[in-house]
């Protein structure tokens, strides 16, 4: 296990990571698609968001359209809509945003090796639907060489880990579920590639549907982060433990808004498990309108709840009262 992954898994409970690229764009004062064209700025703002939230990781690639664009799909960034390719090519488009992503990740990984840097990629089925419009076996086979090339390029930047997103697509409604055998073969190839670079490959799972449970059980990923359910109540902790039992290292996301006994319950449930394998993270999806001040205030309370320590005071945890600015982001910057 690399030092940065070890630090992410073991240092603090919960390990806070944020899908905060939209927030980073807000910090930079520009739309996200524009930020994605400036690797240096992207890297700087991603690190800044991490510091603002007192997080434990920097996350890149939260937008699936990025990988789809690199594979040749047309992306309407204003509407966040992907149009699958009409003329198939086995060559990568090597879009400017993709190059920028690689440069930004490489910059953070090289200059801040102690910071855990995660890159999200769409999983094979999601990727195939975005790029080709479908995810049957033939489409998966056609999409495989492109996804392997993208993964190779990402691994070459030496991030802490690469996570394949497993869950409902934001842009494309899931059609027929992808055949598990074809998926398993592709995942095996992707894992071989990541292993060559010594980069763990895992899943970032939102919405634990039955197919995903089966995939986890059969593919036995090196790392799996459960990010929560997009709708409905989260499964019980015991159910989550069972669903992810086949993964080598598992992070279960505690809602950053979780209060009451829930944080302590979760930590209690995991206390009897191998602490090298199981940890709790707090997953935060921070968009442009998020109240960063409030989120930042929640983090130390979550950590206190995890350790049983008294909750920090308002002053220690940060307060919205120290500035009269209408923009909470500005308020956070002044902290």
């Amino acid at each position: 296990m690399s030092a940065s992954l070890d630090s992410f898994v073991h240092s603090r409970r919960p390990a806070v990571w944020a899908l905060a690229e939209r927030c980073a764009a807000r910090l930079a004062g520009m739309p996200l698609p524009q930020l994605m064209l400036d690797a240096n700025r992207w890297a700087s703002e991603a690190l800044a968001v991490g510091r603002l939230l007192d997080g434990d990781a920097v996350v890149f690639g939260g937008c699936d359209a990025l990988a789809a664009e690199a594979a040749g799909a047309a992306v309407d960034w204003s509407a966040q809509r992907c149009t699958p390719v009409t003329a198939w090519s086995a060559e990568l488009a090597v879009s400017a945003r993709w190059r920028s992503l690689l440069a930004a990740v490489a910059r953070v990984a090289a200059q801040r090796p102690a910071v855990a840097t995660f890159v999200l990629l769409p999983g094979p089925a999601r990727f195939s639907r975005l790029v080709l419009g479908r995810a049957d076996e033939q489409a998966l086979q056609a999409a495989k060489p492109l996804l392997t090339r993208l993964l190779e390029q990402v691994c070459d930047t030496r991030p802490t880990a690469v996570l394949l997103r497993k869950g409902p697509s934001l842009e494309v409604a899931a059609s027929a579920s992808a055949p598990p055998d074809a998926l398993l073969r592709i995942l095996s190839t992707l894992r071989n590639i990541a292993r060559h670079f010594d980069v763990p490959l895992g899943f970032a799972v939102s919405d634990l549907v039955p197919q995903t449970r089966a995939l986890i059980a059969q593919s036995r990923p090196e790392l799996a982060l459960w990010l929560g359910e997009s709708a409905g109540p989260p499964p019980a902790i015991e159910e989550l433990i069972e669903a992810f039992a086949a993964a080598e290292i598992v992070g279960l996301a505690l809602d950053v808004e979780a209060d009451g006994d829930m944080p302590a319950q979760w930590h209690g449930a995991l206390a009897s498990l191998d602490e090298d394998r199981w940890f709790i993270n707090a997953h935060v999806e921070v968009n442009e309108a998020a109240d960063l001040v409030r989120i930042r205030a929640r983090v130390p309370k979550l950590r206190a709840a995890a350790t049983g320590a008294p909750a920090p005071t308002a002053a220690a945890g940060g307060s919205t009262a120290h500035t009269a600015s209408a923009d909470p982001l500005v308020a956070v910057r002044r902290l």
Binding site: K144, P145, T148, R149, E152, S188, T189, N192, I193, H196
Partner: peptide, 14 residues
């Protein structure tokens, strides 16, 4: 080479 390697290595080589 070693990456992707022969096709049978299943590292994306075709």
């Amino acid at each position: 080479g070693s990456m992707p390697g022969p096709a049978c290595y299943d590292q994306g080589g075709e």
